[in-house]
Design a binder for these strands. Structure first.
Lengths: 220, 220
DNA sequence: AATCTATTCAATTATTTTGTTGAATAGTTG
DNA sequence: CAACTATTCAACAAAATAATTGAATAGATT
């Protein structure tokens, strides 16, 4: 019993995984990388942090095997190692969103602030789309859409929405989604669409949530 | 943009959850509590740490809403708040066991050390039990068995096994389980049984793993 | 081969975390 | 209601973490 037991060593190693996600910025990095692979420079902009610090956080994530890297020309591109990382982050959010009162309050404030009166989930979308014809739009950057999107979704990045309004029918319900519950893009899209008298609602879930849900269903 | 955005605040709050499980001892505490509710004193013994430190760790887990407490007579009994905590820990292990080479090595050493030549999973058990009659025994402390166990399992705590050998048939396969992959109890039981010429194998999954698997199936 | 540039490393400082010991607290039981 | 005891708090020292700046590195391009 002089040496640490194997059990303790395993817990020690496991805590490297949890330590890696125990920092807000690193969690945000994983969230961004869940949408699409990115370079250090792009990630640094996305999480509003110096390149050196971003790189340092990426090292931590890499050593915990949560992300991989790969050179592409001048850039080094980081990516999520596999879907078990998505499931881990999903489990954290599932717990946090439901149980931490402070988070519930923040999300409520967020919705009030963005004037999000109505929003639906993936399940709601499925049910509604059986009753009526729904136009589903993906307002994330086109690159993220290309990397993967919900079937039948139309790619209309937020910054192009104003110009491309004519592609959308006034008489049908439009559902917009982006990166997920914490992302503002879909909310901004809804605001614009509502001003232009479209019938538009936000979906909180994004592509990653859809992907995880689909996997779960196909497993049984 | 002077104040931190809501998104940042949410990540900050979420990181309290991940921070709570980012410590080996706290992770072990959750694992123990996953089996059954326990008092501070009992937990302190179980994780081999001073009562004051154990209590301190329990505070952290409580403030992240991972555990609850409740007084029972002279004792304060801690418990897992709900199954989303089990799912979170499961996700961490799923990732760690599969991806961290160091953990794989430790588990391999553990099996070699304990001379675990053969071990099966829950899925294997299901398949095998359709072909032949299998005796499933739960070698955890009786209290944990009472708090919940796999259906049709017989409770034979490890320390009673020697005395109660006569309850087990020599001609059938015996499968023993305990708290899960990191627990030594089932391995010790197998060793004893094999010495006594029983045909016995270890199941790596425990009650918690069974519970999660059942939920997943019933969801779809 | 030399230059260019994205990325990583190194050193530093302020802050946070961990585990101990011993004292304080609060709730129960006789 | 007094004594008891499990639990928590407080204070401390050692260790680890986070973010910055500026220098070094390692590929790619010309």
């Amino acid at each position: 019993m002089a040496t640490t037991s194997i059990k303790e060593q395993v817990y020690q190693e496991l805590s490297r995984v949890t330590h890696a996600i125990s920092n807000p910025k690193r969690m945000e990095l994983i969230d961004v990388l869940s949408q699409k692979d990115y370079s250090v420079e792009e990630l640094s902009k996305e999480i509003a942090m110096s390149i050196a610090s971003t790189s340092q956080h990426l090292q931590v994530l890499k050593s915990a095997k949560l992300i991989d890297k790969q050179r592409q020309g001048n850039f080094i591109i980081y990516s999520i190692t596999d879907d078990s990382v998505l499931r881990l982050v999903f489990a954290v959010k599932e717990l946090g969103f439901r149980k931490i009162a402070e988070i519930e309050r923040l999300i409520r404030d967020f919705k009030t602030d963005k004037n999000i009166l109505e929003s639906i989930t993936l399940d709601d979308l499925l049910i509604r789309s059986k009753k009526e014809k729904i136009i589903l739009i993906d307002v994330r950057p086109e690159e993220e859409y290309k990397a993967g999107h919900i079937p039948n979704a139309l790619s209309i990045p937020l910054e192009q929405l104003q110009k491309r309004l004519n592609e959308l029918p006034q008489n049908k319900t439009i559902v917009a989604y982006c990166r997920g519950p914490l992302c503002v893009m879909a909310a901004d899209a809804i605001k614009l669409l509502n001003e232009k008298k479209y019938k538009a609602i936000r979906m909180e879930d994004g592509y990653v949530e859809w992907k995880l849900k689909r996997q779960e269903k196909s497993k049984n």
